[in-house]
Design a protein around this nucleic acid. Structure first.
Lengths: 114, 114
DNA sequence: GCATTGTTCAACCATCAGGTTGCACAACCG
DNA sequence: CGGTTGTGCAACCTGATGGTTGAACAATGC
């Protein structure tokens, strides 16, 4: 899967988004991350694998713990795509607005000629 | 599915992202949208349904054509989430930087006492 | 050494996603 | 009217996802 698709897919799950939010407070182990959820640690471990493969987190290794932490550039590509396209979309709607304004003006002129 | 998850899930597919890019140039019918892809129109129709249910596009009805067009506020929620969290992540890393700088300073002070 | 703890792995299950084909239906065009 | 075109719907297939349970393994603590 291409990296951008992997990132958006990783973000398309509320559990994973909550995990990312938690990690903004600092690194955490699997059991710590699993605590708020009604879910086994194995399930959370799977979510962490998805986040890691999407390049959103990295995972350390300290004794039997595997602390997860955010990657600093985690959301850069996704943010770039979204901002770029949102800007393009806005431009499109602005163009439409101008067209509509031009049509209105034509109508006025037509009425003037009568 | 919650709206934010639906939006990210919709964006997690290169075909759908390409369709959105195409729609930034103006509305288009299913067959027009399907043309660049090695895929049946039915498959594209399914993608459009996903985009519609995620609130990213709306679909008109003109004779036997169903023109799709972007929703003006399509990417707002997703952009908000990403920008908010990217900012929070940055703050986290800035805090880490400060901690590291403080540790370095302590070391210097310790050396000074010898 | 042995029980406990934190984590992963493997197998399994149910559901969903992305594609196909085939058909149905509505609107146009001769 | 009958044929063509644009689209949607239903059934189906395959592979991925999100969860479970049970076992394995590595490191800790008595």
């Amino acid at each position: 899967m291409d990296p951008l698709s992997a990132t958006f897919a990783a973000l398309a799950d509320p559990t994973r988004r909550a995990i990312l939010g938690r990690l903004a407070d600092g690194e955490a182990t699997v059991t710590e991350l699993a605590e708020p959820f009604d879910m086994t640690t194995q399930a959370v471990s799977k979510h962490l694998r998805v986040l890691e493969e999407a390049g959103l987190i990295t995972r350390g290794r300290r004794a039997q713990w595997r602390p997860s932490r955010l990657r600093e550039d985690a959301l850069d590509d996704a943010t770039d795509w979204l901002e770029h396209h949102r800007a393009a979309f806005r431009q499109r709607f602005d163009a439409l607005d101008r067209e509509i304004a031009a049509l209105r003006k034509d109508e006025e002129n037509d009425r003037g000629k009568h």
